[in-house]
């Protein structure tokens, strides 16, 4: 198909507009992170004086490294648990007919729609009473709760796509229901599992509301919350540069995570299973 130059140019223009619109704030933050303290507020997009001092500063203190470890740990554990539980629930919803199935779907949808902010005070009280306040489980638990509906919804759509006969075949080949699930169904649902894992991880990684209200020290404070506590070396110093650098640093894992798993999301993995 011959694409005329005019048509190409039109599309190129539209693409650029969309990309700039979407990425401009990110690029501005990146630009800020490379500026020196003196040129920070000069309004130039391209820094006049380049520096890596902001990056050196954030990695020189526990103020950033410790929250980064918390973020990674909490998001990874919450994702893992939510995806495993979500897989089981989604499989049950997609394949089995059990009493209360509709109620389960309805309740999980309700949780997904619940405004998180309204739960902050009760959660704070509960976690204080249980001794979960300012601990990793104190964040992991609510993250799993809010990530599960998302996981169940995404995964059950994928499970529905897998031909049921494969499971019957596995049973006939001598598999227990568990073996049939883990050796046949789960590998085929892998693209769905990775998609879900990405979505859940991003949700946990980006959360600010729970992170700021259910933590108080560096024992469990995650990066989004920690950023708001950044100060300069003295109280008169502007922490904009270091905040920008930290923001860039925490965006990187997400980008890597998506790029890494995107390759695993291969469409049409189930082709060839049943008549084509």
């Amino acid at each position: 198909m011959a694409v005329t130059t005019g048509r190409k140019a039109r599309w190129a223009l539209i693409d650029v507009v969309v990309v700039v619109y979407a990425l401009f704030p990110v690029l501005w933050i990146a630009s800020l992170s490379f500026k020196t303290k003196e040129t920070l507020a000069d309004g130039n997009f391209i820094p006049r004086e380049w520096t890596l001092q902001n990056y050196a500063d954030i990695f020189a203190t526990n103020e950033f490294i410790r929250p980064l470890i918390n973020s990674l740990g909490i998001a990874t554990i919450a994702t893992l648990i939510a995806v495993v539980l979500g897989m089981m629930a989604a499989y049950a919803i997609a394949r089995l007919d059990f009493p209360g199935k509709k109620a389960l779907i309805g309740v999980s949808l309700l949780i997904a729609m619940f405004p998180q902010i309204s739960l902050v005070t009760p959660l704070f009280n509960i976690e204080s009473a249980l001794g979960l306040f300012d601990t990793w489980p104190g964040l992991i638990l609510p993250y799993i709760t809010f990530a599960l509906p998302l996981a169940i919804y995404t995964l059950s759509a994928f499970f529905r796509e897998i031909p049921w006969e494969l499971e019957k075949a596995a049973k006939m080949d001598g598999a227990t229901p568990g073996q049939a699930f883990w050796r046949v169904i789960a590998p085929l649902a892998a693209p769905g599992v990775f998609t879900t894992a990405i979505l859940v991880f991003i949700f946990c990684w980006n959360d600010f509301v729970f992170a700021i209200s259910l933590t108080s020290t560096e024992a469990s404070r995650t990066v989004p919350a920690a950023l708001s506590f950044f100060t300069g070396t003295s109280q008169f110093e502007d922490p904009t540069g270091t905040i920008s650098a930290a923001a860039v640093v925490i965006t990187v894992p997400i980008v890597l995570f998506v790029l890494f798993f995107q390759r695993r999301i291969v469409a049409g993995l189930t082709s060839g299973a049943v008549k084509g």
């Binding site: 494969l166 019957k168 006939m172 001598g174 299973a273 049943v274």
Partner: peptide, 16 residues
Amino acid sequence: KDRDIAMVFQSYALYP
């Protein structure tokens, strides 16, 4: 799995 019977399905049901 305990019946020791093999089955061939109409759709073949091969593990892709």
